[in-house]
């Protein structure tokens, strides 16, 4: 019985590390530009589908190489979102940006449907067998998922705390006007945020797709989880998003032991509701800021 719970816990950590990768980009964009980017989910989907595209004919690259052009294009999509939609709207009211991001997300999602159809796809990989570690089954891809999440967060930590760029990122999310007055290069900071958000979302999407499958709704479904993670960690807080993501993943997977698996998604929805109502600043109530 303990093995059963341990298995659920491990599943939760795996799912949670991916949610955390999705949540980071959302939290950073929220922290600086103060809007919820609905089309963030579509970066997840596009990252995964583009990898599928480069790894199948006519390109037929090995999966680990096709990740590179896929991520480059995902970053391109992220930057284009900012350049053509969010930057022109920066001075208008936040609701206009929200509606625009919903529209953008719908457009990109249907773009996926147009190119690849609505059916499930999987990567043409040999079935990875599980390894039994102390009563818990785990596949190589799942280990890869956890290691990549760890690596990404280490790089992010280094970037935010040890570089000048990271310092300006933190300053901008603290107070965008004051930072601009102090001569921080806003273009560079904006650019960095979108690149980071796209890379995290795209890589997370690829890892998720390697473990499960690809479908056009994967981004939207993950986005709601990521949003729950962001709320849990306190909006605009990168480290909160990491812990929030892990928490959501574990809570969701452990819930299977107690309630019907049909209602697995209900957990994160209910959590969003409860958090919004009682703890809108998150459990790590550091007000705003990429810290």
């Amino acid at each position: 019985m303990t093995a059963y719970y341990a298995q659920l816990l491990v599943n939760g950590i795996i799912a949670g590390s991916i949610y955390a990768m999705f949540a980071v980009g959302l939290a950073m964009v929220y922290g600086v530009f103060k809007f919820i980017n609905f089309s963030h989910g579509e970066l997840i989907t596009w990252g995964a589908y583009l990898t599928l595209m480069f790894s199948s004919p006519p390109f037929s690259l090995p999966v680990y190489i096709s990740i590179v052009p896929a991520l480059l294009i995902t970053v391109g999509i992220g930057l284009a979102q900012d350049r053509f939609v969010y930057r022109p709207l920066r001075q208008s009211n936040p609701i206009a940006i929200l509606i625009a991001s919903i529209g953008l997300s719908y457009m990109l999602r249907n773009g996926i449907r147009l190119c690849w159809g609505s059916d499930l796809h999987t990567f043409d990989l040999p079935l990875s067998t599980g390894i039994l570690l102390g009563g818990v089954y785990i596949t190589k891809i799942q280990i890869l998922m956890m290691l990549s999440a760890l690596l990404f967060f280490c790089i992010l930590y280094f970037l935010l705390t040890r570089t000048l760029l990271g310092k300006s990122l933190r300053a901008v999310s603290d107070n965008i006007e004051l930072s601009a007055i102090m001569g921080i290069n806003m273009k560079k900071v904006t650019w960095t945020i979108w690149v980071l958000a796209s890379v995290f979302a795209g890589s997370g999407g690829i890892l998720l797709a390697l473990d499960t499958s690809l479908d056009p709704m994967m981004g939207m479904n993950s986005l709601i989880k990521a949003f729950a993670a962001v709320l849990l960690g306190g909006a605009g807080n990168v480290w909160g998003a990491l812990i929030g993501g892990l928490f959501i993943g574990i809570a969701e997977n452990l819930s299977v032991a107690f309630i019907s698996p049909d209602y697995k998604d209900f957990i994160s929805y209910a959590l969003i509701f409860i958090l919004l109502l009682f703890k809108p600043r998150g459990f790590f109530g550091i007000a705003g800021g990429v810290r």
């Binding site: 529209g103 990109l108 249907n110």
Partner: peptide, 24 residues
């Protein structure tokens, strides 16, 4: 025929974005 529904969705999304940009 299978391209119609996604294209329609893309047009809807595009209209939402353009409305917000040009004629909120």
């Amino acid at each position: 025929i299978r391209f119609v529904a996604p294209l329609q969705g893309m047009v809807y999304g595009f209209i939402l974005v353009i409305m917000m940009l040009k004629r909120p």
